[in-house]
Design a protein around this nucleic acid. Structure first.
Length: 726
DNA sequence: AGCACGCCGACT
DNA sequence: GTCGGCGTGCTC
């Protein structure tokens, strides 16, 4: 429905934390409709907003200000507006703050300018040089070329082009902006699927053909070719003329994925992530909004692109914690992808070698369909996994590598193959203390231990980023040279490895590596080409890279992360270590995974060693049911952040006064925080459990209106899968 | 979220 | 005497 000056006023969602859209006057002669992107005055500034649905509501006529401008831009589609409303309600955040996420490419609201192209005319050049001849041969196709494109293709400098233009041999003609990516061709590649893969692909294609909401979990071991299987569903959706969104965790590093996509579809997908240059960002946004870009591979924020004809969402590595956004609006992109599919009435696909417990449960209970791919593709064999009991085979004094592991590294390197040593801890040592007075180096702002980074000569807080130079003397007692590094980080493991294997080519990889993402990509390429013998890395090596010659993976401290009080600790560790050991043996060579552990009988270690994931999941599910945690129909509650224990206790008192008796309020320190989702800067949290979502929302509203005002923020912990609320 | 206004400390 | 810290409050 179009609205103009007859209607007078429309609701506009503006990017402020207001509960509802604001109302603006539509000036005479202006036409807007729900979804129109407009520029409106807001206080002293002009902001972009989205015309919302319904009427303007009862706002003082004298408060109304007129819409300043309507952008020449496709309106935000209806399903997208419903999605924003839904996410806002679900996360209890202001709808304007959710809407803000789709307005993050401000330059894209105006059409992309046409560019000047050059076209061959009938005129002949005065003198036909060799360079000119090459240009004219290309331009003879009758199509308009860009100046630089033509010069590049003909292998001449652009002055040759300018000369021809001056003589009227080439004439300027405006051409539409180039697409950011070539259109994908659903029939380009493919066809090299195993029977198991082909069955899975056929099933997925059927869900796409149904053209209605469904969720399918692809549960396939690492190396089973899940990607190629869901590519067939992508092809099916493309053939229907729909757009496709593929969500990936940390896409900036997944170059390999883009190449696999290109092998199947003959062109790369458009990328969407925070490292995208602003210009590119705008072009992608615009071309998605116009329906021109057919496939986007993106990080979680790609959910907020204004797709007009979205027909499929794939969430790859669906278990990955990177899908959880924890600033401003708190949400899990995996869950919101399911919601988006539900609102749009199309299928969603979740893929993982190690699905999250909640997705497993959803599949078990029939809310999700399930496709299992239990075997590796082609000649790749799963590595043989063994636990190394550190009580029986302890490392040498001062070291962290068991003789068993050192020996396997030696054999691997001697065979000319690669070994990966995995430790999920950056830096040299996680704790530094003074051997004379016992002083421990602590972060002044968040009281976590400071991690020594020997290479940089600094002590770093991994929590807040605080850093200070590593002192020579103890700041407490002043003693020189008696500071002791406690425990291992990858820098220290690297030191130990160099001690054992001085001749081997060793690479250390972690997210804080100097040179950033670019350098990391180069190093990963170098490893894949065999330019290293031993790789020592943190969890970033677990993600999606293929190292064809990697036949040994040693996990230095497999127990790390099991005892941090997080009820997902076992699940997370299982997922991470499965991914890490899955790096080995991808080309069919016999390969080995060694888990150094003090708890070889721990369910995680047993599951990894036996390969019996099903038993592990069953146990985890039973464990969760016992403790009443999601995903079992119980809302996790409200989180109030506080800096100190006293402050947290004060808030708890206030909450108990305000809360109905059915709510169970507890104050939690970081160690007992019941869900990993709430790892944040604040040290204490109040958790309020309630049985019903509506109760919790009502309670929160009351609390916000007249409860205690915490200095920090009030957040809602919503970690339960949204399907039960759809 | 921005951006104003507003009221108390160290400086051209 | 002013520049500037961030606390409170408002934006259709």
């Amino acid at each position: 429905m179009k609205r103009d000056s007859q209607t007078g006023a429309v609701p506009v969602m503006v990017p402020v934390p207001a509960e509802a859209p604001y109302t603006y006057a539509v000036p005479a002669g202006m036409t807007v409709e729900p979804g129109s992107i407009v520029r409106v005055p807001l206080g002293p500034r002009l902001v972009a907003g989205i015309v919302w649905d319904g009427d303007g509501g009862a706002v003082d006529a004298k408060k109304l200000r007129p819409i300043d401008h309507v952008f020449d831009c496709p309106p935000v589609p209806e399903p997208m507006r419903r999605f924003i409303d839904w996410v806002a309600t679900y996360t209890l955040s202001a709808p304007g703050m959710v809407a803000r996420m789709i307005l993050r490419a401000p330059e894209a609201f105006d059409p992309e300018p046409w560019i000047e192209g050059l076209k061959r005319t009938d005129a002949e050049p005065g003198r036909l040089t060799e360079a000119r001849a090459r240009v004219l041969e290309l331009a003879g196709d009758g199509l308009a070329w860009t100046r630089s494109g033509l010069a590049h293709a003909a292998g001449v400098s652009s002055s040759v082009i300018d000369g021809l233009k001056a003589q009227g041999v080439l004439a300027a003609e405006m051409i539409p902006p180039r697409p950011v990516v070539a259109p994908p061709d659903p029939t380009y590649g493919g066809g090299r699927l195993s029977p198991e893969q082909a069955d899975g692909a056929a099933e997925l294609c059927r869900t796409v053909a149904e053209d209605r909401f469904s969720v399918t979990l692809i549960d396939g071991v690492t190396g089973s070719g899940k990607t190629e299987v869901y590519f067939e569903a992508v092809a099916a959706a493309l053939a229907q003329g729909r757009q496709v969104l593929i969500l990936l965790p940390e896409i900036a590093l997944t170059q390999a994925f883009l190449e696999r996509f290109q092998d199947r579809f003959g062109a790369k997908p458009a990328e969407w992530h925070s490292d995208l240059p602003p210009r590119m960002r705008e072009r992608v946004w615009r071309q998605v909004a116009e329906g021109q870009t057919r496939v986007v591979a993106g990080a979680r924020s790609a959910l907020y692109l204004p797709f007009p004809k979205l027909g499929l969402i794939v969430v790859d590595e669906e278990h990955d914690p990177a899908f959880k956004q924890e600033d401003r609006v708190f949400y899990s992109a995996r869950d919101m992808a399911v919601v988006r599919a539900h609102i749009g009435g199309f299928p969603a696909i979740l893929a993982s070698a190690t699905p999250s417990v909640e997705s497993r449960v959803n599949a078990d209970q029939g809310r999700y369909r399930r496709i299992a791919l239990p075997s590796r593709f082609a000649d790749a064999a799963l590595p043989d996994i063994r636990a190394v009991d550190l009580r029986r085979a302890p490392p040498a004094r001062g070291g962290f590598l068991s003789p068993v592991l050192v020996e396997q590294v030696r054999r691997t390197v001697e065979r000319g193959e690669q070994a990966l040593l995995f430790l999920n801890r950056r830096g040299y040592a996680p704790l530094t203390l003074c051997r004379v007075c016992g002083h421990r180096f602590q972060c002044p702002s968040c009281s976590a231990w400071l991690v020594e980074h020997r290479f940089r000569g600094q002590l770093l807080c991994h929590h807040c980023g605080h850093h200070e130079p590593r002192p020579e003397a103890c700041p407490e007692c002043g003693t020189f040279d008696h500071l002791a590094a406690c425990g291992p980080g990858i820098e220290r493991i690297a030191e130990e490895v160099v001690g054992h294997f001085p001749e081997a080519r060793t690479i250390v990889l972690s997210s804080d590596m100097l040179g950033g993402v670019k350098r990391l990509r180069l190093e990963l390429d170098a490893i894949a080409k065999g330019e290293a013998d031993i790789v020592i890395g943190t969890q970033l090596v677990a993600k999606g890279h293929n190292f064809p010659n990697m036949t040994l993976v040693g996990v230095v401290d497999a127990d790390l992360g099991l005892a941090n009080g997080d009820p997902r600790a076992a699940e997370r560790t299982f997922q991470l270590l499965s991914q890490v050991t899955g790096r080995a043996g991808r080309t069919g060579k016999k390969s080995l995974g060694l888990l150094q552990t003090f708890q070889p009988d721990h369910p995680v270690m047993r599951a990894l060693v036996s390969g019996d994931a099903a038993a592990f999941y069953e146990r985890e599910i039973a464990e969760r049911e016992r403790s009443g945690l999601p995903p079992f129909g119980r809302l996790a509650g409200i989180v109030v952040s506080a800096e100190t224990r006293a402050e947290a206790d004060g808030h708890a008192r206030g909450l108990r006064r305000a809360a109905p008796p059915a709510h169970d309020i507890s104050v939690l320190g970081p160690a007992e925080a019941p869900l990993a989702l709430i790892a944040g800067r604040h040290r204490f949290r109040l958790l309020v459990h309630g049985e019903r979502r509506s109760d919790m929302q009502g309670f929160l509203r009351t609390l916000l209106a007249n409860g205690p005002k915490p200095r920090g923020s009030i957040r809602v912990q919503v970690d339960i899968d949204p399907q039960s609320f759809l």
